[in-house]
């Protein structure tokens, strides 16, 4: 059975690009336009991994990660930050929030897929 990955990004084109890369690797994809939209979709459905941007309206990525770690059903779900940010402060904040990896944009699909393969839940 294919594994499900949630994509959280305010850019529709970016969500589409990431979706193409993941679906090509055999994953199923759930899209959300920001942190709040993503939390509304975490209603018990099995999510094997979350890929989230940082700079998003309504709820940014760091806040979203902290909120996910408060959910009993998803606190062990690995989260990968996909962002154009490279500052160490942002990386430190994401790490402290509970993220497992940091991928910078523009990303090479094989690199993202390698990170997903390493962290995705069984």
């Amino acid at each position: 059975m294919a594994k499900t990955i949630m994509i959280v990004d305010d850019s529709a084109s970016m969500r589409q690009v990431v979706s193409i890369a993941l679906k090509g690797a055999g994953y199923e994809v759930i899209e959300a336009c920001d942190g709040k939209d993503a939390l509304s979709k975490l209603t018990g459905v099995k999510i094997h991994l979350i890929v989230s941007d940082i700079n998003m309206p309504v709820m940014d990525g760091i806040t979203f990660v902290k909120a996910v770690k408060q959910l009993d059903h998803y606190k062990f779900t690995p989260i990968i930050m996909l962002t154009t940010e490279m500052e160490d402060d942002k990386k430190r904040a994401a790490k402290e929030a509970g993220a497992k990896a940091w991928v910078t944009k523009p990303f090479q699909p094989p690199i993202l897929l390698a990170a997903i393969a390493k962290l995705v839940l069984p």
């Binding site: 990386k91 993220a99 940091w102 910078t104 944009k105 990303f107």
Partner: peptide, 17 residues
Amino acid sequence: SRAKHSPDDSDDDLTFF
């Protein structure tokens, strides 16, 4: 992030925590 407009810079593409 401006540096990321150049596709040659791939040293920090992936970081595991």
